[in-house]
Structure formats: structure tokens, C-alpha cells
């Protein structure tokens, strides 16, 4: 899969979530047909010659707008200072199960990071005051889980 470096996406996480520049400087961003990928490895690796299948982890999906991935937000989301929705443990379970939660977004609009006191749960979107979980189904807890 061809990857091309484009670090303009670094600014997205700084602007949207207030993640410090020095944290984001740890990552190089690569575009491919399946999104934007964050890579903290050596800068002198020539990925085209290596014929890479996957580079780091997917950080953004690109369609009409940029959509951050839960996987990457779980890596850098602790450092976010804005566009964060804080949930209690009961609400956190609802978000993990894909249930919309009203009354937690305040004035926030658009993509947010869902966090609890201890954990970064992943990506959500705030629309008209309602938090719509964007956490992938594969991360939903089974009923038998603890």
C-alpha cells in the first residue's frame, strides 16, 4: 500500500484537542487510501522501498471531514485539553456499548475525546448536546465481561 508523508495532520490534533506540540512531534503522519496513519518510528525509514502494509496505527479517517480514530485517541488523548467529554463510570459503559448520552456535551460540537477519571475511552461526536459514541463495535464489552 503506498504511503506518503504529510505532517499537516499533526496540527489537527493540536488545534482540535489542545494536545501539546511536543507530544505530537513524536509522530510522523502518512496518508494512504485507507486514512492517515501516525508513526513514531525512525524518520529515515523509506516506506516505499519497504513495501509497508501498515505504518504505525490509523489516526484519522478522511471523508468529508477528518475523523479521529479511537485507537489513536487512546494513545494521545490523555494530553488533550479541549473538546473532551468527561463521563462517570456508568456513562462510560453506555458509551462503550454505543448508547447515545444526553446532557454531557455542554457547548461542545463535533468530534470529542471521551474520557473518564482514569481512562481514555475513544472518539465521540457531540450533536445538539448529545454525545454519540464513535467507539468501534469491536471494543464493545460482552455481557459476560467484567
Amino acid at each position: 500500500m503506498p504511503y506518503s508523508k504529510n505532517n499537516v495532520y499533526r496540527d489537527y490534533f493540536v488545534r482540535r484537542f489542545g494536545i501539546p506540540v511536543d507530544i505530537m512531534d513524536n509522530y510522523e503522519f502518512y496518508e494512504s487510501t485507507s486514512g492517515v496513519w501516525a508513526f513514531s518510528g525512525a524518520k529515515d525509514i523509506d516506506l516505499s522501498k519497504l513495501d509497508a502494509e501498515v505504518v504505525g496505527i490509523r489516526a484519522l479517517r478522511v471523508s468529508k471531514a477528518l475523523k479521529p480514530t479511537t485507537a489513536f485517541l487512546r494513545v494521545v488523548g490523555h494530553y488533550a485539553t479541549k473538546n473532551v467529554v468527561q463521563l462517570n463510570s456508568e456513562q462510560a459503559l453506555e458509551a462503550l456499548n454505543g448508547i447515545d448520552i444526553e446532557g454531557v456535551c455542554g457547548s461542545l460540537h463535533g468530534y470529542v475525546i471521551i474520557r473518564t477519571e482514569h481512562d481514555v475511552l475513544g472518539c465521540g461526536v457531540c450533536r445538539e448536546g448529545t454525545l454519540i459514541s464513535q467507539i468501534p463495535k469491536k471494543y464493545r464489552p460482552d455481557k459476560t465481561w467484567l
Binding site: A38, G41, I45, D51, A52, V54, I57, R58, A71, K138
Partner: peptide, 25 residues
């Protein structure tokens, strides 16, 4: 899937027969 779940960002995945593959590096 494991790399994503564990938040590993310094890894490049390649596919090939490791007996003959040229890794360039």
C-alpha cells in the same frame, strides 16, 4: 489488531515470505 489495541506506533507491518523477502534495511 493487537498493535492497534496496545497502542503500538513504532511498527511497520510487511507481508512476505521471510526466506526470500528483501527488507531494504
Amino acid at each position: 489488531s493487537n498493535i492497534e489495541r496496545l497502542g503500538i506506533t513504532n511498527t511497520v507491518l510487511t507481508k512476505g515470505d521471510a526466506r526470500t523477502k528483501k527488507f531494504v534495511i
